[in-house]
Design a protein around this nucleic acid. Structure first.
Length: 266
DNA sequence: GGGTGATGCTGAG
DNA sequence: TCAGCCTCACCCC
């Protein structure tokens, strides 16, 4: 689940659910017991997402940092929630909403200095309206690594993950191994704009859809079945939706990438 | 019921 | 470069 669009969606949802009155916070699993007892009963003032990171601002200048990693998940319940599982690291409850967090890479209270260290490692976030496309361009210009590897580097751009990198490169017809520094300025500008558009689309619908629902007789992204939502991700061995060439898979930047040899020539 | 892979990242070597 | 960490949905018996 968690690329940048999911994180920003969680921020929006949690802001709405937890902004009225004090929030009960506890750690059913116990691994966040100390932090939870520190937060329990405080008001949540704001949530700042950045890339794949979430910063929850609590009264009393306390910040909770959450990073979901590969497996982390929030579950939200209205009314009477089911009992938390043994894997529930943190639970938050306000009004009739209960939110469980399981499997995060990070769930910790951070000092301003620690937060600064995290932020220093992150590039511009396409879902942040004040993010600078020029910073993205400058980050790419400095790297000789393949664009397919650069898009996964959170210091280059914060929030893109393995699904979006494959889909974005397909949408723009860029071969994944093209050196980042060799992309034309206009291509980089279009890549940024498209990244913003696609992540926003994912944030809105809650799922990653890069294809056009109309082609499948649907009108909304969420009406598409799993296989219809994407052009190349995990489609190796299948025909390209645009040209019919067989989609390929290979390793790039320690992860698999999928691409179309015809639509994305080297 | 067991095995596996996954939309992520870090730190040791 | 690679092991390790975190959890769960999905597949196969």
């Amino acid at each position: 689940m968690p690329e940048g669009h999911t994180i920003h969606r969680y921020a929006r949802l949690h802001r709405r659910r937890l902004n009225n009155g004090p929030v009960a916070v506890w750690s059913p699993q116990g691994r966040f017991a100390e932090g939870a007892s520190h937060l329990d009963g405080r008001h949540l003032e704001h949530i700042d997402p950045l890339g794949k990171h979430l910063f929850y601002r609590w009264e009393g200048d306390t910040t909770l940092h959450v990073h979901l990693g590969l497996f982390g998940k929030f579950r939200t319940f209205t009314g009477e929630p089911p009992p938390p599982t043994d894997e529930t690291r943190m639970a938050m409850q306000a009004g009739d909403a209960t939110i469980y967090l399981a499997g995060p890479t990070a769930c910790e209270l951070v000092t301003p200095a620690e937060e600064e260290t995290i932020r220093d490692r992150l590039g511009p976030d396409p879902l942040d309206r004040s993010a600078s496309p020029d910073r993205f361009a400058a980050n790419l210009a400095r790297r000789r690594i393949p664009i397919g590897a650069a898009l996964l580097d959170q210091k280059v751009v914060a929030g893109v993950g393995n699904v979006y990198r494959a889909e974005l490169l397909f949408l723009l017809g860029i071969h994944p191994r093209t050196p980042a520094s060799e992309l034309a300025a206009v291509t980089v500008a279009v890549l940024w704009d498209r990244t913003v558009d696609e992540l926003r689309r994912g944030e809105r619908s809650g799922r990653i859809v890069t294809t056009d629902p109309v082609h499948f007789g649907a009108t909304r992204d969420r009406d598409l079945h799993g296989e219809e939502r994407l052009y190349v991700y995990k489609r190796h061995g299948l025909d390209c939706r645009r040209c019919g060439t067989v989609i390929r898979i290979e390793d790039l930047g320690n992860r698999s990438i999928w691409w179309c040899p015809s639509c994305q020539p080297g």
